[in-house]
Structure formats: C-alpha cells, structure tokens
Design a protein around this nucleic acid. Structure first.
Length: 262
DNA sequence: AAGCGGCCCAACCGCCGTGTT
DNA sequence: GAACACGGCGGTTGGGCCGCT
C-alpha cells in the first residue's frame, strides 16, 4: 500500500472516513504530547474530540506508546538487552508486551521488529541453497564485526546468564501447574546441566559453538556442523510458547535456551 | 553511477479481553 | 446477560536507507 495512491491522499498521509492515516507530522506529535500532558494517558478516542487531532484512538495510543513516551530509550539494543530478549523469548514465546515489560524504555513493537529482522531471517539460511546462502553470508559479514564485539561481552555474561536461566526455571516451576510444567522443566534442567558442559570441549569452545559465522558454520568447529546451526536458529524462531506447547522437542528447547548465549 | 536486495522501523490491521451501560 | 466501546496485543506491511555488485 502506498500513501501516494491511497484514496483521499492529502499531501503527507491520507484521510479515510475522517481519520488521517500514515506518518505523523511534528504538529500532530505536539498536539498529542499536549493532550497527554493535560489529560494523561488513556481515553484515546477522545483525543479527536478534545484537541481536534484527526487520528483515531488506536493510532494515538500507538504513536504515544511506541514513539512519544518520554521514558523511551532510543538506539540499538545493548548486548545485555539482547540476551534478556533471547532468554524471555525462550520462556514466553512471542509475548512481546510481556518481554517488553522486562526491558524498561523498550516497546513491544521494537522488540518484535528486532526479533524478526535479527532471527527469523536466519531460519531461511539453508546450506542447500547456495545463491541464497551467499547473499546471506554477505549480509552477515556486515554484522560480523559487531558480533565479535558482542561475543567478548557475552562471554563475560554467560556465567551470570546461566544462573539467571536456572532461577527462571525455578520460577516457572512455581508459577505453572505442576502436571503441565514439571516434565518439561525437569527434562530441560537435566539437559541444561549435562549439555551446557559439552564433554571434551573447553569453555571457550563451548562459547564458540553458539556463535554462527558468516558462512553459516560455527566458529571453532568444522563445516559439517552447519546443519546444527540451522537447527539452532530454527529452534530459536520456531519454539512455541513454553506454556502453550509442551510437545516441543527437548532439542528445540535446548537450542532455544542456548540462543540466550549468542 | 545505477540497480538491486536486505535491514530497520513506523504504522496499520484484525482479533480478543475487559469494562461499562 | 447482551451489546457496545475501548484498549491491548501480535502479525503484517511498506517506505526509506544503506551496502554491495
């Protein structure tokens, strides 16, 4: 859909059934900020009546929540925020608003966008598709330098994160019904304690195992592990909500949690 | 220099839950 | 209890930007 070809196009944005749509102008932002300053958040449908802004309530709320709120953090997510997102996504699935509540200043929209661009694409990375693989590799190359910097930080965070995950599992055990949760938690915990210390690998090798490199392989290991990496990313994206799908394979579950260390 | 492809992100849509009348 | 309004949430879309060829 293009704003330029929409019916009722009105310069910047468009008007449909009396409501403006499309990108917000600075003037509209000012009006909305003023509205919230005077009336507070909520009653979004009265914005149009009270200040004459030709936007529907939903649009106003979205604009405020995702863009105008003064406590919003702007800019890239920090590696630590990324690891929290990975952890919480492994736990909650696509409950973006729930995840966002654990990240002050970040919106569900931001996290959702982040996850989709950062992780969903990776699942399409298939070693069977060479041309696609090449173009993906090109793009990943761009991210490599940033990743390398993050890896260094993540290594330091790994130990701390493992403790947090174990405590999250403890919480989950208490919050969810024992019949539903226990087998999963027990299985996961068992795998965590056994798999996390990969036999015959050094700590650095274990950390390297979870960092895909530009050619889809895994740093520190052979090219025959590329399938494992794809499974890892598949697991990250496809993992169903822990509460909702207890049929998830333990492999997927473990890979999802392993993602917390990427 | 131009074209292409992918990333990022603002914004919209539809559905659902909750509160109010 | 039904109908309606409203707000929240997750999924999706589309345009701008940027890097690569």
């Amino acid at each position: 859909m293009s704003w330029a070809v929409m019916p009722g196009h009105f310069g910047w944005g468009s008007i449909e059934e009396g409501w403006r749509k499309g990108p917000w102008t600075a003037e509209e932002d000012k009006l909305l900020i003023e509205y919230v300053r005077v009336h507070g958040e909520g009653r979004w449908n009265s914005v149009a009546k009270l200040i004459g802004l030709k936007r529907n309530g939903k649009s106003c709320r979205l604009r405020w929540v995702n863009y105008l709120r003064p406590d919003l953090k702007r800019g890239q997510l920090t590696p630590h925020e990324e690891s929290i997102i990975l952890e919480l996504h492994a736990r909650w699935g696509n409950r973006w608003s729930t995840i966002a509540r654990s990240l002050p200043g970040r919106t569900d929209n931001e996290i959702k966008n982040y996850w989709r661009t950062r992780f969903k694409k990776k699942t399409k990375l298939s070693p069977d598709n060479n041309s696609d693989h090449k173009s993906k590799a090109r793009l990943m190359k761009r991210q490599q330098f940033q990743q390398q910097q993050q890896q260094q930080q993540q290594l330091l965070l790994n130990q701390f994160d493992m403790k947090r995950i174990m405590s999250l599992l403890d919480e989950a055990e208490h919050e969810l019904s024992p019949e539903a949760e226990l087998p999963y938690v027990q299985q996961l915990r068992q795998e965590m304690t056994t798999s996390v210390s990969y036999p015959n690998t050094t700590e650095q090798q274990q950390a390297a195992l979870f960092y895909p490199t530009i050619d889809g392989n895994v740093s520190g290991s052979g090219s025959d592990t590329s399938n494992e990496v794809n499974v890892l990313w598949d697991g990250l994206w496809n993992l169903d909500d822990i509460n909702g799908n207890l049929g998830a394979t333990s492999k997927v579950c473990w890979h999802s949690l392993a993602g917390a260390f990427c």
